[in-house]
Structures are given as structure tokens and as C-alpha cells.
Design a binder for these strands. Structure first.
Length: 482
RNA sequence: GCGGAAGUAGCUCAUUUGGUAGAGCGAUAGCCUUCCAAGCUAUAGGUGGCCGGUUCGAGCCCGGUCUUCCGCUCCA
């Protein structure tokens, strides 16, 4: 385990050193738990997103993709339950480290008081809560010497609002402004567009709506590199099904999603299912697909059977009918008719997937050369189809017409996949650099190329090389990246 | 959020009791080189995380703050 943690540090350093991930605003000492993707990372992340998007929308006739706005009507978050469940002021006792809801703490204290004094305190608490006066609430607790039940002390932290949602104002005039939230999940953008998509796309149940995009959660503690960030990207698909068939589809997506992860090179023994014991208010079944990260087994993707909770809630709050008319015939030969569809959700964190791929790809290799000396390299064995750069084109020398041939090859290949051109430094050094950023293929142009139009192709994972016609380079690399 | 540790060049680290910062690797440019980090030359790069205090003088001592890591907590 100690080695794995050290290894994790090295992965983080490597990500920075080779332009995969930088800390946000590093110039100003950084912003906690926010990260930027660099020139390599942005491309890898895009490739992962594209793979997912393709597997969902292009490969399934009955799944379509949308791109909903981050800003949504405030009532969306009331309907979804996000506002009510997560907006309580909390306070911690520094001695016992026990956390309390402020209203619960004060109410418990009031129960020990005379009726009149108690009512006065409740009235004061309600006034402070309504005014969002967190400092006032702390003063109330301290002046009344309300103690922690465990430590019996009055050593409190400040009162903090523990709503996980970030809020901001819409509209330029403050008095008229409405508080809106940055979405804490992308799913609601799909639910509120259910009717739009179903009707305009003439979608028939069962069908899915997919979406990728940023979500924001004001985590109390956000750590472990890009595993838990305050701003992150989700790739979600909500699959709408006939009520009663949800478990069938839940099991279908459970398997389908695990297979997809395996298809991008995640070994099956590094993945496992973890069933939720305690279910969220909206779910009738839920599980995580976990990956064995360098710091342990953690959630990579969630599969949730969300029942008709979300659509019903939006129907209730919007006072609009959100239903589907099913013309298919049931066992008795009658149409299923009107109903609120049930939902099976797949929700994967793109940043977590990125971390998964990087932590699998990162390898330090050592070997003994033919002359008996030691050699080593750090290599990112990112599967070719998601690697940010597919091909490096390297003239062995930067003279004798070799760069000209190399440039010609570059121009031929770059419309088809991402290439990198380099003529500086010894060839071995250039190979090492390509290993470090995970480029799966390198081709070298030498003097023999001028005679017989062949080049050397060198494979990242095995470090083996072979001679191929220059005319074959494009096809071989394209095929290797499928 | 609580407790612990850390922060010096892109990276890894020096700078022995306080006396205004160095190396290796890397990077850039040039020379030389016919396939796995070769060699030579030159150059760039640091108000020692930031702010304040003590001192004649602080990278070093003290306080605060920011960030990161570890443990706990949290993560509908």
C-alpha cells in the first residue's frame, strides 16, 4: 500500500510534468480541489468523452444525446430534492469532532428549559435562520452555553451552511435577482427535457437520453487529486422504461457498462460491483462500478434505478403532465396506455475515468541492455484508440532531405489522426519523450527511406521496431487506433 | 472541518549553530551524430508559496494565510 501511494504521487507529478493536469490557478497558489487539463490531458479527456458518446448514441438506435445548460430554473432543484435535503446550517464541536444540525442542537437544549425561555430562544433561532445569520446562530449557542453531548464542552467551530450546491444570481439588478444554482448533477437537464426529446424525436420506450457536461458540488472535503473535485464532468444516460421492467434494464446496463470499461482497456479484475445497502430517496436499486485506484476501491460509475421519482416530481412542481402513451400490447392484447416511465440511470465521472486510465497506463520499466548496463523508462501505456497523440514522425537527422520526407508524411497523416513532429535530439531521447506522453507509434525516416521508401515503425508497448513502406504508415496507425 | 507532515529553478534535492542561494537532470539555441535518455558549446530559469513579526541582518526563529499529502470526518 505504501508503494501504491508513492506510485500515486508519481502519477500526479507525471501528469503535471507532461502537460496532462495542472492545478487550477497555480500561478496564484492554486484553488483547492480544482484542476485544469493541459495540452495532453484535454485531448485524452476528449477522446474518452467521444468514446462514451459514440458507444451510447451512435451504437444504440434508441439513445439520443442532448446538451442542456448548466443554469436551470431554481424550482428544478426543489423538485429534485437537492434544495431541501442539503441546506441545513451545521456546527462542529472541536473536542468531540461531532457535527450537529444547528436547529437540532438548539431544540435539544430548549427541551431542558422553562417553557417561556424556550419559546423565546426558538423564536430567536427562527429569526436568525430566516435571515441566514450564521454568526448570530453561533453567538446564540455560545451565550446560552449549549454544550456538546459527547465532549460536554462549548468549543464550537463557526456555523456553516452545508448546502452542496453553488449558487449565484441571474439578472443584472441585485434586488430583482433570483438565486440560481450551478447544477450538482446533469441528470435533471435530461428529466426536464424528457417530453421535448420524446415528442420531437418520436422516441419509443424503452429509450435513452445521454449527456456529458460539467457539474458542481461544494464538497466539504475534496481531495485525492481529480477523484473528488468541486467542478467535474459527468457522462450520464437516463434510460426510460416501462414500469415493472426496471430491474431487467438495471441488470442490462450493469453488464453493458462494465463491458464498456473493459473495452477501453480496463482489466476485469480491477473492476467490481458494489451494491448500495442504504438507498437514496429516489432509488429502488443502486450499485457502483468500482475501480481499484492507487488509494483503494472507489466508485467510478453509478447505476441507479430511479423509479418514476424525478419525472413525477417535475410533473408535480411544474403542474404539467409528464407521461408517455404506450401503444404496445400487453399479455391481454390491450395497449399499455398512459404511464410515467421508470428510469435506469448510468452515471460515470469523466475525471474519474481519466484517473483510471492514467493510473493503469503509468509504468516504470527497468531492464538490462546488451552491453550489461541498466536502462529504464517511464511510459504511459494508454490504449492506442484513446491516446492523445497517435503517431510521432521523427527524421533520424535534420538534414540530407530527411525532414522534407517527414513533413510530407506528416501532411498525409494529420487529417486522419493526431500527429507529433520532432527533429531535435538523438532518436533514443525522442522515443523516451514519446513514451512519457503515451504516443503508441513512432516512425523514423532515415537514409534508406530515400532509396526504397521504407521507414522504421517503433511500438511503444514492446519497444520493438520493424521496416514498413512509407505508404502503409497511415493505414497501419489508423488500424492500430481502432 | 479536526489532527499530523510538507512547500527552495520545470523535476529531484543541497545550502552544518540566522550573514542577501547551488548542483544534477530537464528545457532552449548551435555543432556533432545512421535507431532507444551519447558528446561538446552557449543561454534562459528562483523578491526561498504568500503576508507580517523578532533581529543590525531571516530560506532558516515566531505568528497568520494559501496549497498539497496522510489519518479521522464528510461525500443525498
Amino acid at each position: 500500500m505504501a508503494n501504491e501511494i508513492n506510485n500515486f504521487q508519481e502519477i500526479i507529478s507525471h501528469c503535471k510534468e507532461y502537460g496532462y493536469i495542472f492545478q487550477s490557478s497555480e500561478l496564484y497558489d492554486g484553488l483547492s480541489a480544482v484542476y485544469d487539463y493541459g495540452q495532453m490531458g484535454a485531448q485524452l479527456k476528449k477522446n474518452l468523452r467521444d468514446e462514451w458518446w459514440k458507444s451510447m448514441t451512435q451504437m444504440h438506435d434508441n439513445i439520443v444525446g442532448i446538451d442542456a445548460a448548466i443554469f436551470m430554473h431554481p424550482t428544478v432543484w426543489k423538485a429534485s430534492g437537492h434544495v431541501d435535503n442539503f441546506s441545513d446550517p451545521m456546527i462542529d464541536n472541536k473536542d468531540s469532532n461531532k457535527r450537529y444540525r444547528v436547529d437540532h442542537l438548539i431544540e435539544a437544549h430548549v427541551a431542558t428549559l422553562e417553557k417561556e425561555a424556550g419559546e423565546a430562544m426558538i423564536a430567536e433561532m427562527d429569526r436568525l435562520l430566516a435571515a441566514d445569520d450564521l454568526a448570530g446562530l453561533k453567538t446564540l449557542i455560545e451565550t446560552n452555553k449549549i454544550k456538546c453531548n459527547i465532549s460536554k464542552t462549548c468549543n464550537w467551530t463557526d456555523v456553516r451552511q452545508f448546502n452542496l450546491m453553488f449558487s449565484t444570481q441571474i439578472g443584472s439588478v441585485a434586488e430583482e435577482a433570483d438565486t440560481i444554482y450551478l447544477r450538482p448533477e446533469t441528470a435533471q437537464g435530461i428529466f426536464v427535457n424528457f417530453l421535448n426529446v420524446q415528442k420531437t424525436g418520436r422516441m419509443k420506450i424503452p429509450f435513452g437520453i445521454a449527456q456529458t457536461g460539467k457539474a458542481f458540488r461544494n464538497e466539504i472535503v475534496a481531495r485525492q487529486f481529480i477523484f473528488r473535485m468541486r467542478e467535474f464532468e459527468q457522462m450520464e444516460m437516463q434510460f426510460f422504461v416501462r414500469p415493472g421492467t426496471q430491474m431487467e434494464w438495471y441488470n442490462y446496463w450493469k453488464d453493458a457498462r462494465k463491458k464498456w470499461h473493459e473495452s477501453i482497456g480496463i482489466p476485469t479484475e480491477k473492476l467490481r460491483f458494489h451494491d448500495h445497502v442504504k438507498l437514496a430517496h429516489y432509488a429502488d436499486a443502486a450499485l457502483d462500478i468500482e475501480f481499484e485506484f492507487p488509494f483503494g476501491w472507489k466508485e467510478l460509475e453509478g447505476i441507479h434505478s430511479r423509479t418514476d421519482f424525478d419525472l413525477s416530481q417535475h410533473a408535480k412542481y411544474s403542474k404539467k403532465k409528464i407521461q408517455y402513451f404506450d401503444n404496445d400490447l400487453n399479455a391481454e392484447g390491450k395497449a399499455y396506455g398512459n404511464y410515467t416511465p421508470f428510469v435506469v440511470e448510468t452515471s460515470v465521472g469523466l475525471d474519474r475515468l481519466f484517473l483510471t486510465v492514467i493510473s493503469l497506463a503509468y509504468q516504470e520499466e527497468k531492464w538490462t541492455k546488451e552491453d550489461g548496463t541498466e536502462d529504464s523508462r517511464v511510459v504511459l501505456k494508454i490504449p492506442a484508440k484513446i491516446a492523445p497523440t497517435k503517431l510521432a514522425i521523427l527524421p533520424l537527422l535534420k538534414k540530407d532531405g530527411l525532414p522534407e520526407i517527414a513533413t510530407e508524411l506528416l501532411n498525409e497523416c494529420k487529417p486522419h489522426f493526431h500527429c507529433f513532429y520532432e527533429e531535435k535530439d538523438a532518436i533514443g531521447k525522442r522515443y523516451r519523450r514519446m513514451d512519457a506522453i503515451g504516443t503508441p507509434f513512432c516512425v523514423t525516416i532515415d537514409h534508406q527511406t530515400k532509396e526504397d521508401n521504407t521507414v522504421t515503425i517503433r511500438y511503444r508497448d514492446t519497444m520493438t521496431q520493424e521496416r514498413i513502406p512509407i505508404s502503409e504508415v497511415k493505414n497501419i496507425v489508423a488500424k492500430g487506433c481502432m
